[in-house]
Simulated scan of single mutants.
Amino acid sequence: MRDVLRSMADTLPGKFEITGEGIVHDLISPNGHHELTRLLLRRRLEKVMPDALLAHNGTPVLEDEPESILRHPDVMVITWENLDTEGSIDPRDVLAAIEVVSRSNPDNDWVGKVRDYALMGIPVYAVFDPRTGTGAVFTDTHPTPAGPRYATRKDFVYGEDVTIADWTIPTRGLPLYGPTK
C-alpha cells in the first residue's frame, strides 16, 4: 500500500494516509484557519514544554509497519533526538498527537485517528474542532478485543484551558471555520 500511496501522492492533490481500513485521501488542502490553529497550538505548547521537546508540525510521517498504519498528525510532541531520523517516525516515540479537524473529512480525526493513534501506542491524542469550537483529549490506553483503545476522554470548549499530557495551554483566540460557501 505504501508504494501505491507514493505514486498517488505525486499525481493527485491533497493528503494521503494509510489506516487499518485502507487509504484515506483528504482531497481539500487545509485552509488558513486550519493552518493558523496548527501553528498557534504548536507555539502555545512550546512555551510550556521543556527545551528537550518539540511540538512538530511537518514531515516525516508516523508509521507503524506491523499495524500497516501511516498517519501525519497536524502537531506531534516528540524529543529533538527522536525527530533526527531517516524515513518515518516510530509512533512509540511520540508523546502526544494533535489534530485540527478537517472540514472535508471530520470522521478521519474523530473516529479513525482515535482508533489508530491508540493502536500505534501514542499515549495522548488531542482533537481541536474549528467547526464547533470544541475538542477532546484522549488518554489512558487499555486493551480490548479489537486492540488498544483510549479509556479516558476529556471534552473542552474553546476559551477553556486544556491539558495535553503534562502541559496546559489556553484555547482562547483559536479560529473557527466560517460558513461553507
Rank of each mutant, 00 (worst) to 15 (best):
A55L: 08
R92P: 12
S88I: 01
E63M: 06
E67N: 15
L45S: 13
A55G: 14
R71I: 13
E46P: 06
D64N: 14
W80S: 10
S68T: 14
W80M: 03
V94Y: 03
E81C: 07
I98Y: 06
N57A: 15
S88V: 05
W80L: 11
M49K: 07
D64F: 02
P91M: 05
A96M: 09
I69R: 02
A52D: 15
A96G: 09
N82R: 10
I78W: 00
A52I: 14
V48Q: 12
S88A: 15
E86Q: 11
M76Q: 06
I69K: 01
R71H: 09
V77W: 01
I69D: 05
A96K: 01
P50F: 07
V100C: 06
G87V: 05
M49E: 12
S68V: 14
L70H: 03
E67V: 06
T59V: 10
N57I: 12
E67W: 03
V94L: 04
V48K: 06
S88H: 11
V77F: 01
P60W: 05
K47Y: 04
D90V: 05
E86R: 04
H56P: 08
H56T: 09
I69W: 01
S88N: 13
D64H: 14
L70D: 11
H72W: 05
I89F: 00
D84S: 11
V48F: 09
V94A: 08
H56I: 08
L45H: 09
L53Y: 13
P66K: 00
V94D: 08
P66L: 02
P66Y: 02
E99F: 13
A97R: 01
I69S: 05
I89R: 00
E81V: 12
P50Q: 07
D93M: 09
E63Q: 08
V61Y: 03
A97Q: 03
D51W: 00
I69G: 06
P66Q: 05
V100A: 04
L45V: 10
I78M: 00
T59G: 15
I78V: 10
P66G: 09
E81N: 11
P50H: 05
D93I: 02
L95G: 09
L53G: 14
W80R: 12
P91G: 10
D90M: 04
T59A: 14
D74S: 04
L83G: 04
G58N: 11
G58W: 01
E99K: 09
M49Y: 03
H56D: 15
E81W: 01
S88Q: 08
E46T: 10
L70W: 00
A97M: 04
L45P: 08
E46I: 08
V94W: 02
A55T: 12
I89A: 01
D90R: 06
L54Y: 09
G87T: 09
V100S: 01
L54D: 15
L54S: 14
D74G: 12
V77P: 10
V100G: 03
A96Q: 07
P50E: 11
D51F: 06
T59N: 11
P60I: 10
G58Y: 01
H72S: 15
D51Q: 09
D51R: 02
E63S: 11
G58H: 07
N57L: 14
R71L: 15
E46A: 11
D74Q: 05
T79L: 01
E63I: 07
